[in-house]
């Protein structure tokens, strides 16, 4: 991963771990071991806000940032897209296997057993 992507990720982790909106300075302090310039943190937060991952609000003279949605919501979005729950297989992603109906899953499990394998799920 490139440095910018890695920074975005670290800063999102800070926002996700925080219960309240954070100023640029607070975010920088929580990444103190990285020794980041104030402007770098500001630029990355700005990028995250433009991409819709972070939301910012005015607090006096400073901006406060928070994650637009929690981590689980984004994981869910990722997986919904990956599992193609719309039923209309798009060409955007290529899945290894498609989910089957309950009755067919039973058939697949017995096929596994007939191979001498134990279904694990």
């Amino acid at each position: 991963m490139n440095r910018l992507g890695e920074l975005e990720r670290a800063i999102m982790d800070v926002l996700w771990d925080s219960t309240e909106p954070l100023t640029v300075r607070q975010v920088g302090l929580r990444l103190a071991n990285r020794d980041l310039a104030h402007t770098t943190v500001m630029t990355v937060l700005d990028r995250l806000a433009k991409k819709g991952f972070a939301r910012r609000q005015r607090d006096g003279r400073a901006w406060r940032y928070q994650a637009a949605a929690d981590r689980e919501a984004y994981v869910t979005e990722l997986m919904l897209h990956a599992l193609d729950q719309t039923g209309d297989r798009s060409a955007a992603l290529a899945s290894f296997a498609r989910r089957v109906s309950d009755s067919e899953a039973q058939v697949l499990r017995s096929a596994l057993e007939s191979l001498g394998e134990i279904p694990r799920d």
Binding site: A97, R98, L112, L115
Partner: peptide, 26 residues
């Protein structure tokens, strides 16, 4: 066996319309 395991896991989560085709494919 990888196909069988992934295909059979968490069945019933997809909408029914997509399933008939998925069954035949698998």
């Amino acid at each position: 066996t990888a196909l069988l395991r992934v295909g059979a896991s968490g069945a019933g989560q997809a909408p029914s319309g997509a399933l008939a085709a998925a069954d035949d494919e698998m």
